[in-house]
Nucleic acid binder design. Sequence first.
DNA 1: GCCCATATGGTCAGTTTTGACTAGTCAATT
DNA 2: AATTGACTAGTCAAAACTGACCATATGGGC
Lengths: 170, 170
Amino acid sequence: MERELLLLGLLRRGDNYGYHLHDFINKYMASCTNLKKATAYYLLDKMVERGWIEQKDDDSDSNYPPRRIYSLTEAGEAAFQKLLRENLSQLQPVYFTGDIGLAFLDVLDAAEARALLQQRYQAVTERLNHLEANAPKHEGAPQWVLEHHMRFLQFELSWLTDLLTRLEGV
Amino acid sequence: MERELLLLGLLRRGDNYGYHLHDFINKYMASCTNLKKATAYYLLDKMVERGWIEQKDDDSDSNYPPRRIYSLTEAGEAAFQKLLRENLSQLQPVYFTGDIGLAFLDVLDAAEARALLQQRYQAVTERLNHLEANAPKHEGAPQWVLEHHMRFLQFELSWLTDLLTRLEGV
DNA sequence: GCCCATATGGTCAGTTTTGACTAGTCAATT
DNA sequence: AATTGACTAGTCAAAACTGACCATATGGGC
């Protein structure tokens, strides 16, 4: 239900279109979840059925394609409050798909393994630099989310450094 | 394709049943990916179609329910080699669904926010203790995977500690 | 010898997710 | 005034995933 929590939380700040909700998540919360546009609409539909949010056609200025505006109901607010507390109080699972490769490191000779991991190190560095450079632009992004993400990338760099030195000794 | 890489890598160590492959992943690689049994069979089927692996009925000792044994083909070995290098050289995305709650921390009063995050801290600690306690039992687990996971949990603890002290100042 | 819990091995209908698409708007070039 | 590229808004058929289920086996306690 994390993605529902996210959509509810954003709608709580004001009525919005599916398009904008997805766009915001994609721009500023990409480190939290991977939510495609079609999935966003799917989830919104489901929440309408559950009565957590309402949908009305927006035929105000029709320069734009016809669109629906979503808004939170009271049931939705209650669901948000519940989901928020659950999310904060528990440890949410995190999956390191990059560790799958590490499980098979012994397949490669040490030199190539190091070379590949150095490429990964480079990729992490670039990611971090990019985040730092664009940090001011990301005022829309919730502060803690961005900071946690950047610290995590730093953690990954130190882990990789450590791993690389240990692989040298082999 | 990370899950395919994982299945291929395990099959590379020896022919195996779908059941065992899933079981191993669930026990020792749960931090890398979330792979349900039915999904494992689905992926195995697809890889058979692609010619990466072969399936033969195992009617050897029929005490057990009928079962199929999977084995790597040459095409599968080639795919494994390619996927392994891709996985190691790139930065694989990691999603922090726990950060969604952080984005809405301002909804709660500071005291409750701290209390909830302290519960999360407790949950992380328990997770870490559990891993440490069972570490010897996890000889099957690839060394780096386990170590990365434990270090990550320690990182999370320090992040939470820092966050909590900063929330006190509010 | 019987019952129950757990383990083995796998299937399938239903749910969830997504790539690719439609279709119009706006602003800047050409 | 036609072309291009980027943005707005949403849809749909196909692909991927999963909860719940079936069937047998094995071991232990009573």
